[in-house]
Amino acid sequence: MSRSTTARRRSYALTYAGYVVAALIFFVPVLFMLWSAFRNNIDITGSIFNITSPLTLENFRTLFERFDFIYYIRNSFIIAGGSTILALIFGVPAAYVIVRRRIPAIGFMTLLARMAPGVLFVVPFFILSMKIGAASNDVLNFALLICAHLIITLPLCIWLLVPFYEEIPRSLEEAALIDGCTPRQRFMQVVLPLVTPGISVAITLSFIFSWNYFLFALALASSNTMPLPVIAFNFIGQGSSDYGGLMAASTLISVPAIVLTIVAQRWLVRGLTGGAVK
């Protein structure tokens, strides 16, 4: 066996070993969460690795008896879905203007908002909530939460779409201009269909980031607009914690994001790879 063949096999072995380690780092906590969701609280705290402990559905029964979980799922969909839709409405044309007008400074300013800690925005939003009476008005409270989550979703949407717009040659738009297309027609009929993979990535990641975000809902949501992550927090107490209920709640919270990722997998992979290759 030649030295080059040995080196190549060793390189492959190291690569696959890295994949295995990365998979373990990612999947072991997820599998532990799923397993613990079906275990008694005393088994979770007593012996983590006891695989002979009995499985039960009691955590899920307690979850739905203690909370109106369907109601809070609806709240999460309203907040995450609303912030994702608004991020697309503003972010899709904004990314196009940033690329075509060559004004990356505006895009960088939106990125600064995303890079800043979320607690920086909590106090201004809380004061605004008190001023407009959002704490006692469900519609205003949902609107405030959606606007707060735009701090997460809008910069993400813009910066995911910028590489896709950069790949589109100006000659396509110039040809459409010669054919008599208006600026709106050029954008809607020529440019937008070419960035569909990027839009699918932006939808998926924006929804997941907004769905899982905890801080704004904890500080701003009322009892009628509370989303799932804050409800899951109620299983952690100062004196004792219901780890089984927490794991069951975390499992149910993860389901919509996992389903969305599976459904959009084809477009997601195409979009992630398409935006990186020029």
Rank of each mutant, 00 (worst) to 15 (best):
C181F: 14
F216C: 03
S136F: 13
F90N: 04
N50M: 01
Q185Y: 00
W35T: 14
T204W: 05
R74K: 14
V277S: 11
I85N: 04
N137V: 08
P193Y: 13
I89F: 07
P29V: 01
F77A: 14
S136I: 10
S200D: 05
I132G: 03
F187H: 10
R74A: 11
F216T: 09
A134T: 02
K278R: 15
F67D: 07
A105R: 10
P29Q: 00
S4D: 04
D68P: 10
P29W: 01
L246G: 06
A7F: 03
V230G: 04
V259I: 15
C157K: 03
M33K: 00
D43C: 01
F126N: 03
L112S: 11
W211N: 13
N40H: 14
V123W: 00
S222Y: 01
S222D: 08
I236F: 11
Q265S: 10
Y16I: 02
A37T: 01
T84N: 09
D43I: 01
L215Q: 06
A176V: 10
A135P: 00
M33W: 00
L160C: 09
P163D: 05
G82L: 13
W267L: 05
P93V: 09
T56V: 12
L14Y: 10
G46E: 04
W211E: 07
A221F: 10
Q265P: 01
P229S: 12
P54L: 08
L24G: 12
K131M: 12
P197K: 14
L205D: 06
A87V: 10
L160D: 05
G245N: 04
T182P: 02
L272S: 07
A221S: 15
A13P: 05
L252I: 08
G18P: 05
M109A: 15
L177I: 13
M109N: 11
V277P: 07
I42L: 13
F216H: 12
I199E: 06
R184D: 01
I85R: 04
